[in-house]
Design a protein around this nucleic acid. Structure first.
Length: 465
RNA sequence: GGUACCCUGGCCGAGUGGUUAGGCAACGGUCUGCAAAACCGUGAACAGCAGUUCGAUUCUGCUGGGUACCUCCA
């Protein structure tokens, strides 16, 4: 079994375009592994406690703060934004994780992990809080391997923050925090009535559901330091080894070259993208064009948002989906698989299996699109074998692995609508037969203004919404 | 300041020590009553300078520009 753990969102606000990137990236990874025959356990957490506004130890819990402002229970905030996150991820056609654990539901596991780290001698108790002792840990295990730092440069660059008096060193991080009187979310522990540190939940929950050693740990690049570095240190301190075979980090989505982020206030929520209700959006974009936009870049590269790029992605996506739809109706002649199609299939798999290079895989799929169109047009011929392979490339890879669903089909165009459109098109055909082109053009224009595009082909008139 | 990364044609975006990435846009053609779509074809790029090399967009160094992390962020 392949075990994958991905850091999920802290649910105190709506999911934005940035959240779509790991959502989609790891979704494609999971789909690919399943397609290749692996049994996958995909764990993605919901952070609902312990994530402080800053690390000064005086920082307020993000969720508790939102709850205070909105005058709601913290768990109401959590529930509200968790549901909205699920909705957004579903619209992006991501598969739900196998397990979606919440930090607040794993307090005993976290307490026991703190005890283990204390027993191992890599943590100390100070005024009811427990801190990870980075310096003593570093004597046996290098701290900073994941992010390419050494303790020396961590030391020289750690800010001395106010209110960190309980810590021996500014770079030590909290495993358990004693709650201040006004703190809402709190639990009993051997050290104090308090709450777990943010980094702790992922160590505790990944071990619980995936074991002491699992295959892939994913997350955004911004979590590399300190979050994943601390996680790695906690794992190693508690069990003697890091426990993760491969770390995977998706890069950021930028806007005007700058990271899109909550703290920068330059983010666009997914809902705004889907509805076009944000001042920098020229119009609404479908979830699938956003998915395609993200997959056209490699997950480790930054990807810059712009209306132009999104519109280009949408057109490319539609072109591919049209070919995917057309392939089953193609004429094919009996015969063997051609070298061209065989090479094409191989190239697609090679790309996906080479560090999930969706960008190159899509480029090859566009070769398949061209072939489909040529055959449809009659300027190229394929064998039945070829057709079968092409069909599986679109259905199993483009739709199955890349998760590109046909959002037109789900767009609510009912049977009645299509019958009505057919009726109108029949009237247009009659007008054309009578060479009443003024009339036929008028019908076309009025359909266009309703959002229905039509095109005349040899086989008849096709239409899309 | 420390660390890492990036700079590719009009735009987005892969990739490689010598061979067309791809998408969008543009241009020419085919098709069409016209349009759209589709198809065929075309052009266009590797920030600058120096070095290594038979050969560099790809390696090295420098310069310029930009980004991320170093406090929370996917």
């Amino acid at each position: 079994m392949a075990g994958i753990y991905v850091c999920g969102p802290t649910v105190y606000g709506d999911a934005h375009l940035g959240h779509a990137r790991p959502g989609i990236t790891y979704d494609v990874l999971v789909r690919l592994l399943i397609h290749l025959g692996y049994k996958v356990r995909y764990v993605r957490n919901i952070t609902d406690v312990g994530h402080l506004e800053n690390d000064s130890d005086e920082g307020e819990d993000k969720i508790a703060k939102k709850a205070r402002i909105e005058q709601l229970e913290p768990m109401e905030i959590v529930q509200h934004y968790t549901i909205r996150y699920h909705e957004a991820m579903k619209m992006l056609n991501t598969l739900p994780p196998s397990i979606e654990p919440r930090a607040s539901g794993h307090i005993p596991e976290q307490i026991s992990l703190v005890s283990k780290i204390l027993d191992a001698g890599y943590a100390y108790i100070s005024n009811g809080s427990v801190y990870f002792d980075v310096e003593s840990y570093n004597k046996k295990h290098p701290y900073g391997v994941l992010s390419g730092r050494t303790l020396e440069n961590v030391i020289s660059n750690s800010r001395v923050l106010d209110g960190a008096d309980d810590k021996r060193s500014p770079f030590d991080f909290a495993l358990w925090k004693k709650a201040s009187p006004e703190h809402i979310m709190r639990w009993d522990s051997p050290w104090s009535n308090g709450f777990p540190g943010w980094h702790l939940e992922c160590s505790a929950m990944s071990a619980k559901y995936l074991g002491d050693k699992f295959d892939i740990h994913g997350g955004g690049m911004d979590l590399l330091f300190p979050h994943h570095e601390c996680e790695l240190a906690q794992n190693t301190a508690a069990r003697g080894e890091g426990g993760v075979r491969y770390w995977m980090h998706n890069n950021m989505i930028t806007i005007n070259g700058q990271k899109m982020g909550k703290s920068l206030g330059n983010f666009i929520t997914l809902e705004e993208l889907f509805t076009g209700s944000h001042k920098i959006l020229e119009r609404a974009y479908t979830p699938m064009s956003i998915r395609f936009f993200i997959l056209q870049a490699h997950y480790r590269s930054t990807l810059d948002f712009s209306n132009e790029a999104l519109i280009a992605a949408e057109k490319g996506y539609r072109k591919m989906m049209q070919a995917s739809k057309d392939v089953s109706g193609l004429n094919a002649v009996p015969g063997e698989l051609s070298d061209e199609i065989r090479a094409l299939r191989e190239a697609v798999y090679d790309a996906l299996c080479d560090d999930l290079n969706t960008s190159v895989a899509i480029a090859h799929l566009f070769d398949a699109v061209r072939i489909v169109n040529q055959v449809k047009e009659g300027s190229n011929k394929i064998s039945l074998q070829d057709k079968e392979v092409l069909n599986s490339l679109f259905k199993e890879i483009a739709e199955g692995v890349l998760g590109l669903a046909d959002d037109q089909a789900s767009g609510g165009n009912s049977k009645i609508l299509s019958e009505v459109v057919e009726l109108i098109l029949e009237m247009r055909r009659e007008a054309k037969a009578e060479k009443n082109f003024a009339r036929s053009d008028e019908i076309r224009e009025r359909l266009t203004s309703l959002g229905i595009t039509i095109k005349d082909t040899k086989e008849g008139t096709e239409w899309t919404l």
